[in-house]
Design a protein around this nucleic acid. Structure first.
Lengths: 201, 201
DNA sequence: CATTGATGCTATCCATACGCCAACAAGATA
DNA sequence: TATCTTGTTGGCGTATGGATAGCATCAATG
């Protein structure tokens, strides 16, 4: 089990390698941790190597590598949030926020998942085969992406707009498909999309 | 049978570990329970350990762990998978597969999350502000979406194509942006995108 | 009324975690 | 080669936190 500072050290090293392509030097680690002592940094590095999280080539400058195996003790549902990435810029570390908790990201009361078929929402980043997390609800706000049942027969995934005359517009996010307008009593909101996910294999 | 305060303590500890990734310190437990005494907090921790709900590593700072069975309890991370949805059709129930396990969907060894800035991959359904799950790896296959470091300076998110002459093409998924071709030694693969997620607020 | 259990406080002991520095050895570099 | 940088090790000190004990209060109970 790692101490707090050991965990800090591991995160710093991992982020550093991802950002620079090579390992840090002890002094850079110390600076990253906000301490003055190379010796202390070295001690943390040793602890991480003992724990099997990193590999150290003895004596070698910048001789720190990440191990292939994942640490088992990390909570199984939290992924490290390394930083922002934008085309043409180095990965920018996010200060403060360091983890994505999948539960926090997606879980909530009355939620379920639908698998999306078709490209009708592709311009909103919802592609064929994606999963959408839907919160069951009867009401929705203007601009929400909703699961709507029309005439009690067909269910669709669309962006909802409320018109001044009380009618509703359901708009596919695909410029090939036209929006449709319905009187409110033909449309039943079944839920609102609160999340979306995709897995590449 | 746990007393009221013991239950409070257990809830606090479990939430703390899920939130922070490591156990609380006695003083934090005391504060969480609204009491002033580390000693009292310690007594509750002992009771929970005796009851088998937590494990305590003696003497170790923050040495509280959840028991195996508690950690295995995934129910908090499983969403019901209701079915497929396609425009113009009723929701079609999926036979067999009935749940989405977030861990199974996203977790794996050596993975981390990056927050995407910009629209360079929007036609692949990766929008500004999305999170991508990246598996840290040095090699990638043709057509993979990768995090690539160019000239050890700039990191980008692009689709990777390998050319016959050994060079690599990095292609933005945005018809406004051109693909670029690099000699292999200028490009360092830092990871491959294995998942993507988005949260609507 | 005495007993018991749950709850809470304070004080104390000592191992752990954390940090600094100095010295030396082993790369790296000019 | 000479010099600088970096890795490695050991010693030292301080602050924090875990473990334990003793005492007090209160409510429930027979």
């Amino acid at each position: 089990m790692l101490s707090i500072r050991q965990q800090d050290t591991y995160r710093f090293i991992r982020d550093f390698i991802l950002r620079h392509g090579h390992g840090p030097v002890l002094e850079e680690i110390a600076e990253g941790l906000g301490i003055q002592s190379r010796g202390t940094a070295h001690r943390y590095v040793q602890a991480l190597a003992d724990a099997g999280l990193i590999e150290v080539i003895a004596g070698r400058h910048r001789g720190i590598r990440l191990t292939e195996q994942e640490e088992e003790d990390r909570s199984a549902y939290i992924l490290p949030l390394v930083g922002n990435i934008a085309a043409g810029l180095p990965i920018e570390a996010i200060p403060g926020e360091e983890h994505i908790d999948l539960a926090e990201f997606f879980m909530g009361p009355n939620r379920f998942v639908l698998k999306v078929q078709g490209d009708s929402m592709c311009e909103a980043g919802i592609m064929d085969g994606d999963m959408v997390v839907v919160e069951q609800r009867n009401r929705a706000d203007d601009g929400d992406i909703v699961v709507a049942l029309i005439d009690n027969e067909v269910a669709t995934l669309k962006t909802l707009y409320k018109n001044d005359d009380g009618s509703l517009t359901l708009k596919p996010e695909n410029s090939l498909l036209p929006p449709f307008r319905y009187p409110a009593d033909r449309v039943l909101i079944q839920g609102v999309v609160v999340g979306q996910m995709r897995s590449y294999r």
